[in-house]
Design a protein around this nucleic acid. Sequence first.
DNA 1: TTTATGTTTCAAATAATAAAAAACAGCATG
DNA 2: CATGCTGTTTTTTATTATTTGAAACATAAA
Lengths: 300, 300
Amino acid sequence: MARSDTRFREAYNQILDYCGTLPPSAAMPSETRLAELAGVSRTIIRRCLARMEEEELLAWSGREKLLLRAPRASDRIDVQKQAGGTGDLEQRFLDWVLRFDVPAGTPLSVAELSRNFGVPQHELKEFLAGLSRFGLVSRRPQGGWMLLGFTRDFAIELSDFRCVLELNAVARVAEAPVDHPVWAALAALREAHLRLQREIETDFHEFSKLDERFHQAISSVVKNRFTAEFQKVISLIFHYHYMWDKTEEKARNAAAIGEHLAIIDALEARDAEAAQEAAKRHLRTSKTTLLSSLRHHELA
Amino acid sequence: MARSDTRFREAYNQILDYCGTLPPSAAMPSETRLAELAGVSRTIIRRCLARMEEEELLAWSGREKLLLRAPRASDRIDVQKQAGGTGDLEQRFLDWVLRFDVPAGTPLSVAELSRNFGVPQHELKEFLAGLSRFGLVSRRPQGGWMLLGFTRDFAIELSDFRCVLELNAVARVAEAPVDHPVWAALAALREAHLRLQREIETDFHEFSKLDERFHQAISSVVKNRFTAEFQKVISLIFHYHYMWDKTEEKARNAAAIGEHLAIIDALEARDAEAAQEAAKRHLRTSKTTLLSSLRHHELA
DNA sequence: TTTATGTTTCAAATAATAAAAAACAGCATG
DNA sequence: CATGCTGTTTTTTATTATTTGAAACATAAA
């Protein structure tokens, strides 16, 4: 069979709700009007009206549409929207890859993923096609897909690319006008960093979240559709790896806090040169951390 | 009906070719072995063998597979691979968009594109899903797709992003070792530029190709899967716009040749600083050209 | 002349299906 | 008895067919 009639069901209930607001035995507006109200095509509206006539809610003849009685709750048709949700598929997919440390070269079965994520197959295919643009997956010659990341090369290229994007972002921040919201964000981040620095002995694992917030704030200054997509993926990957590599986590995080503060200092002093240097230092550290976390995983 | 049996047909011919190399009435290798040879699953091999038996090419019983006679050309089955080719869909699609100046906001019908490009619908869907990652198209709320580029914002963001990537590439070139192939390429490009500079009065429209070659050479130094994808799209777009904006084309191209030569000079002198400056100047010019070409198109 | 409805056409979403791949199990042969 | 091969079954993927929904067109009422 064919596509689901969810659209019809939702529209029907919506129309019923609208009828509830009308006085009894009122004339209903035109099909075009109703279609606009429900944000749906006239075809659907006509199906709704037909059903209302069947249910004896409506006397319909030509352009005479008289409401016979107020709709009851029992008149509604239930629309079971399938769980899982197709919205944050990207998040969930990367989460799965990173959390279970799915190795590079793993064949990805669309059918299996479709079951696990509760998403129709064709959506998964489109999704994978999108990821292949980022070089995360690729089509196999004998059909199907295969996971490419996380090799060492991948991590290096990802870090380098991130570096290019972020150094640019830092440069943009340095030349942002005083009333730009980024300055407020940076001031707040400075406080948060200082607070965490004081409590580093106990709360050091809080850093991962702070790191994400920090880089997010810097990147948000660059309004660019091309970078935006990448930032999502990049931040997710670094976020996870920060959380997992437990070797000397406390010392690492303490050092990173210092590096962040150095960047903020330089930016607030509008010293673009110093900010670049500080950012470079921090990104170099990040890259090393990412690579070493990969090594540990490989040994495990 | 279902998928094409191209895979079977190609494998069959391949097996026939292989049989040609065997002595007459030889025993054929195991199914697994043949499957490896043809790069195909055992299921296909068994279909091939079954057909060969039907054609009285083979006496097949259990694991006894005796070749009865050498295969002739007439035994092959022809495999008509549909024209059009799904390979350079990206090239053809962008070509279409740019050549016919398809305006931003145009609804894209998968069915129609599928017919025009001679590519199955589902492939087009995957393709569009990939492009949406670059912000070139997006899904419409009521279903279907819509073209986003070419607005002014798009051109600005594209130029800025290109600038970030290329400045990085220039920096990488400046620190490349002396035996890196890029130096030979640059030397050749210098000659080509000088030659065109001499013949600028007549051959100025040759510049577009040269420009593409130049940026390609610079970018190729950065080995990064993330940038590689973008470069393809970016270069195509700039390439076309260069070709179309006919206003003062000769003067513009002459100036660009000078800018290119300045970049090559600075690079060959290993002066990273000067190279950055020269590149910045050139990219600024490019951006202006792209924007003005858009304005002209809008007026037209 | 405008606006609404009746009718038709076309495209997009999704189920169904044939083809291919992979997994499984039993058997023969050294 | 263990290895490798074939017969069979199960999954999975690529592709078509079908159905719902959107939109274009035509016609009639106000």
